[in-house]
Write a protein that binds this DNA or RNA. Structure first.
Lengths: 114, 114
DNA sequence: AAATTATATCATGATATTATGATATATGCA
DNA sequence: TGCATATATCATAATATCATGATATAATTT
């Protein structure tokens, strides 16, 4: 007996957790801003802190998330950590999302269930 | 005197809330599965309930989120509500994300800070 | 070595999101 | 009209996420 119900749905279910987690990487304003800012050029933690005006702790914590999810990677240079966007396609996702959102921005921001 | 600090960062800050909220639309496994399932064809709430094996309340609630954020739209037919993906570009985002994720799926799922 | 700078980590309280079960609404049918 | 079906909404308890401040680590400078 193979798959009682729906095999493709089974597959989807397995991927869904990971994909949803991936998207939750961009689901926080500060994390989104970090990625969008790093789109331009790589930066140290301190530079990001100054650029975004958030606490060092906040930035480091969110960077940790983003690194886990593969959005950014870092290289150590002296006592500074330089972060950059890992994969150019991530910026494509951001661009696409901006276009889709453009039409119903007001609608989205008024959503209370999320 | 124009913008004391960074104007582009100001702009980014404004958009970030909306974009982050947009992405949080896909940041829940059930919502992700709904969108991915509707990618194939439009469906009624009941059909989604059966397909995903979740409660009607759960599905309706998540559909409400997705509708707010413009991911899906619905049309009423008799006493059924048919839902479909609003914008084809949303599916492009899903496809892109799948590709980016493919490389570091294990990494993502082990992330504990999110 | 001691002090400084840059970053990471962690505990905890505050806040936001989610699941659940109950209930409401609206349509179609007997 | 009364009942069944399909969907939406809501209150609340459970859970997850986040901000904050404190502390740890590690490299550099004095």
């Amino acid at each position: 007996m193979s798959g009682t119900s729906n095999d493709s749905q089974e597959q989807l279910k397995i991927h869904a957790d990971i994909l949803a987690k991936f998207f939750s990487g961009l689901s926080h304003p500060i994390r989104y801003r970090i990625v969008a800012t790093l789109a331009e050029k790589e930066m140290t933690v301190n530079e990001i802190v100054n650029e975004l005006g958030c606490s060092q702790s906040q930035i480091s914590n969110h960077l940790a998330c983003l690194k886990w999810c593969g959005y950014v990677s870092s290289r150590q240079e002296g006592r500074s950590a330089y972060y950059q966007v890992t994969d150019k396609r991530i910026l494509d996702i951001l661009e696409l999302a901006k276009k889709v959102v453009a039409d119903n921005a007001e609608h989205i921001s008024s959503c209370t269930r999320m």
